[in-house]
Amino acid sequence: MAVYNLKINGTRMEVDVDPSTPLLWVLRDHLKLVGTKYGCGIAQCGACTVHLGDTAMRSCSLPVSSVGNQEVTTIEGLSENGDHPVQKAWLEVDVPQCGYCQAGQIMSAAALLKSNPSPSDADIESAMNGNICRCGTYVRIKKAIKMAAEEQAS
């Protein structure tokens, strides 16, 4: 066990866990931030996507010991009132079905728009290919990302 002082959603949080513990389980079990989801545990589905700095990361495969001083943003901290352009577009397009994969989808989309404010279809597809949606909401996801990009530009 070891103590880690993490910077999550702008707040310092301390946990005492085994160094091998993935950030996902630190968030979910120890910090009760359950918006970040478990889907596969092997960086294949994207349900656990968070931002490390500005980069989308699969938190299930990121040991807490490697987070260090980097800023972690989870779905709970993406915006104060749920009004990030991506979240707004998600609601406008009514993307979710079961909703389980959507936190990860939104975090991937938000990271994409940060690095590429007006992504092409191909850019969207390659940035979002790591996020599985069993309900099949991909068509709406694409539409919502384009809507968010437009809103950000205006």
Partner: peptide
């Protein structure tokens, strides 16, 4: 009509069985 749980879903509120604590 939009999904009644939409806002909770996109803000990562606990809704699912796995989120129970």
């Amino acid at each position: 009509q939009k999904n009644v749980d939409g806002k909770k879903i996109v803000t990562g509120q606990p809704l699912f069985g796995l989120d129970v604590n």
